[in-house]
Design a protein around this nucleic acid. Sequence first.
DNA 1: GTGAATGCAAATGGTTTGCAACGTA
DNA 2: TACGTTGCAAACCATTTGCATTCAC
Lengths: 137, 137
Amino acid sequence: MSCVFTLKQKGLKLTPQRRLIAEAIHDIPTHLSAEEIIIYVQDKMPGVNKSTVYRTLELLEEAGCVYRSRMGDGFVYHHAEEGHHHHLVCRKCGETVDCDEDLLASAEQAIADQYGFHVDLKHVVIRGLCQDCTRET
Amino acid sequence: MSCVFTLKQKGLKLTPQRRLIAEAIHDIPTHLSAEEIIIYVQDKMPGVNKSTVYRTLELLEEAGCVYRSRMGDGFVYHHAEEGHHHHLVCRKCGETVDCDEDLLASAEQAIADQYGFHVDLKHVVIRGLCQDCTRET
DNA sequence: GTGAATGCAAATGGTTTGCAACGTA
DNA sequence: TACGTTGCAAACCATTTGCATTCAC
């Protein structure tokens, strides 16, 4: 996990809790809510506190190891190692699909060209209806 | 304000508070946070309660008169009368620019084609750096 | 040993809810 | 009058913070 090195580089301490949190984000393929991360971590190391998890996630985000995006009521976390992509989430069944980064690249470019805005569309969470749920409606 | 008729159609009552809240959303050109709407309303009619504003906004959203999008910590409201468009918000100076709906239309189409997801990209709030703030960096 | 990291408990703050009083139709 | 709507106060709840204790280095 490269974030381990990043932490060391920044002179931050490598605690078991931090290892575990980094592991959770690294190992689980989908993006995770803070609550899911807390459950994962507490399962392997009971007693780890919520605020430790939140603080570590903030740390990892600042270190560039983790992306955080809004999703529904809260945030969702995603490791930053495998390049960028977006997330399609079905608002009915919850199915999650990763989608290509390039999908929004043209929009990003158009926004820069037309409005001079420099936007950062990485790991955007887009809600909608998946194929199956569209059919069922 | 067409929402007034929509409310009537649904058998909902037209109270002064509701008129005022609809007016706020209709008259102010940018999208508004709940707090800004509360200030606007309380300025013209002191004593109106926060929860009335929240409840009315929910009502208007259900009635299709108002769009609600995530923005930063809370929500942002926008009347639904003038067609759709997106919002570029500078994360440094806060400047807000409306941008064309078509910007994301191609992405919407591509998502439908490639992933079968039917997404609804209306009044999306996109954060980034505006031209001036990009230069200053 | 020392400063950073953790656990705990309490605070935060935007939003929501329960309920009694009120006002529109 | 009757039922929807409002104001008030309290609840919610994910996230954040203060502080004493603990631990990695």
